[in-house]
Design a protein around this nucleic acid. Structure first.
Ligand code: SF4
Ligand code: SF4
Lengths: 121, 121
DNA sequence: CTAAAATAATACCCTCAAGTAGTATTTGAA
DNA sequence: TTCAAATACTACTTGAGGGTATTATTTTAG
């Protein structure tokens, strides 16, 4: 969609392109629309359109909308309880990574992705 | 083990400490010993000892030994085929992360981890 | 010789997240 | 008022990874 961000896309079409199940797509799209990235138009001749400029859609926001960004900020070692005063052995070593990850996903927007030389989704 | 790297540790003991299954522990330990990090001593009064200084054991090597480092260098999006000339949309955005990850795991050694203020494993 | 240790190989189980499927409802242009 | 679209909710399937279990073998101090 980001290739031609002003078009209207109907679910049917997207499902064919992405080769995923109808219901699954709709679930995701609904999530995204609730998050305000796209606008969903119901009724006949409905579909999905971007609701804001793709330059204003940060990757972290998308992740948050569909699965929760927190997941990726958790521990490498998979511990539940985690704080600076109850650290695991990796704590200090891992911190810079977390920073970098957060930074990457927070700074990059949809517009930063390279949709031109790409033939897989 | 890295807390007192010169001791001999028997499987029985480690199993109790880590609360994981006997067989599982042994599998891991055997992997590690094959990789040359620890030496396994068979027979009665046997056990496991470090075979090299913990300052010479890089995290990436450990991961390689037990599950394969490559796993973590793959794509964010989970595509199989991936190369610079068949990139996915995230390719350029993701590269720095991969670098950082590789760097972290390659540079840090067991000795860099903080075993002092830690009470969970 | 024997007991206590590690090794080996293989099959099994369990859980969880990703994805599918079913079915009924609402919306709105023509 | 009809029809094609999106929504909502719930149940199901599936696959992979992390971990267990079994059983049999080998090693070595005492
Ligand atoms: S203390 Fe740090 S490294 Fe350890 S589990 Fe928590 S966040 Fe992860
Ligand atoms: S092209 Fe880059 S971002 Fe895309 S799947 Fe391959 S490694 Fe990952």
């Amino acid at each position: 969609m980001a290739k031609a961000p002003d078009e209207l896309y109907r679910a049917r079409f997207l499902v064919e392109q992405l080769k995923i199940s109808d219901k699954y797509l709709r679930r995701l799209m609904t999530d995204l629309s609730k998050a305000g990235f796209i606008r969903s138009i119901q009724g006949r001749d409905g579909g999905y359109v971007f609701a804001k400029s793709i330059a204003n859609i940060h990757l972290s926001e998308i992740v948050d909308a569909v699965e929760g960004m927190d997941k990726y900020l958790g521990c490498v070692l998979g511990f539940e309880e985690c704080s600076d005063d109850n650290p695991c052995v990796m704590h200090s070593a891992w911190l810079p990574m977390r920073e970098k990850l957060l930074e990457t996903f927070s700074n990059k927007t949809l517009a930063d992705l390279d949709f031109e030389h790409v033939n897989k989704y």
